[in-house]
Design a protein around this nucleic acid. Structure first.
Lengths: 224, 224
DNA sequence: CGCGGCTTTGAAGTTGATCAAGGTCGGTGG
DNA sequence: CCACCGACCTTGATCAACTTCAAAGCCGCG
């Protein structure tokens, strides 16, 4: 019986457009702060993120919020089983998107290759959501933040001098609602990681990973 | 901007076999306590649950555990994006399963109808996982348990006299690890729901829903 | 009857939430 | 260029929910 390693998401580390021979709708563009769709909207399109970052959220009646996912280049956004969107989707940066007609999901319709690509994307999504269950359910605040930073580093981290670094287009509240914490706790945890020299923080939107091994260990839950 | 209603999973409320014309492997059978696969195993097959209940779990190095899902009749079990299982899968009851070759997921291979059915199943899975994010991340202990009972009632609840009732094939620890609580808290919360006459509990494995509206309200988070 | 596994209950301990100020930074307008 | 404003972030003090630790109860089964 193994122990959970975060799935080595063979997710498109770099943006990789879906293969298709179908005539497609033209690329869509979104300004920071703009919404792509709201919860309850009819699903007309699926989108593959070409560039930029999106935020998918859900709300409870009393305002409690959960960030369901951040959408990065390569990700497919807007999957729904019943033709209704179940999240709000907002652009955090300038975003470019490739839309695909909803019918591309339906049986028979659309080209086979595209269909298979959607299934692969859905399977990757399931994998990463399973990882996140563990994060939400069983990890401490510092383990959660470490997991988040590691995940972002794997997806969109860049070499910067001696260290790798990650840009955070979302604010502390978004991170809090993704990790099921409060902004205060996220902030305190950043401070803690900074003080233990595991990371350094620039202008609150750039994190430099000074001790990657320590960060990964924390993320895995080797120690609390 | 809407507020999250748990997705009306158009999930096969009753077991609905996948349509396929393909020659299939014969149905598999599992005794209670038997494992279907372990984390790290190669994925050879996908399975549709015909009858019985499965439990999918993940572990952290220090033993912290998260129940990823319970597999009920109609559910597709064993989705993986990279051909490796990322959970342990154990039968909680006698289980019958219809296996499907992994290749049925791959592009080109297999029949189109089956392929589309898998995609639909994957999309439903994503929907229900999104619901569960909200439960794990933002709900209190009693809201979590109420959500769990409502979900089970929708899926497999039965009319029993004046009330509906739900059978729980899993134990308190499994429920705890599904909802990210401890067995003690789950037990206390059951007691609390019992004392407020929202539910009645039989032999610890049967719950009678005495006040469905109160239970649903609690699950939605109308009040804490 | 008695054993073992599961569940319940109680008391004390912790983690993270809440409440409440300040502090920082970037943009705007005088 | 500087002052101000607002949004966001940080820090501190207190609090509550849930966990942990401990012990007893229940129940099905050999």
């Amino acid at each position: 019986m193994f122990v959970s390693l975060p799935v080595q998401t063979a997710a498109p580390a770099a943006y990789l457009p879906l293969e298709t021979s179908q005539p497609q709708k033209a690329e869509t563009h979104l300004k920071p702060g703009a919404y792509l769709f709201y919860e309850g909207d009819d699903m007309e399109f699926l989108y593959q993120v070409t560039s930029g970052v999106l935020r998918l959220t859900r709300l409870l009646a009393d305002g409690r919020r959960q960030v369901i996912a951040f959408g990065y280049p390569g990700d497919i956004i807007g999957f729904s089983s019943n033709g209704i969107h179940h999240t709000d989707c907002k652009a955090l940066t300038d975003v470019r998107l490739q839309p695909f007609r909803r019918s591309a999901l339906e049986r028979g319709e659309g080209d086979r290759i595209l269909h298979a690509a959607f299934l692969q994307a859905a399977l990757r999504e399931i994998s990463s959501m399973q990882d996140h269950f563990m994060v939400l359910g069983r990890k401490s605040a510092s383990e959660k933040l470490a997991s988040f930073l590691c995940m972002l580093d794997e997806r969109v981290g860049t070499e910067s001098g001696a260290y790798r670094s990650v840009t955070l287009p979302m604010n502390r509240a978004d991170i809090a609602d993704f990790l099921a914490l409060t902004t205060e706790t996220v902030s305190r945890t950043f401070t803690q990681l900074r003080k233990s020299k595991i990371i350094a923080v620039n202008n609150n939107h750039t994190v430099i990973i000074q001790r990657p091994t320590a960060l990964k260990g924390l993320a895995r839950g080797d120690c609390r």
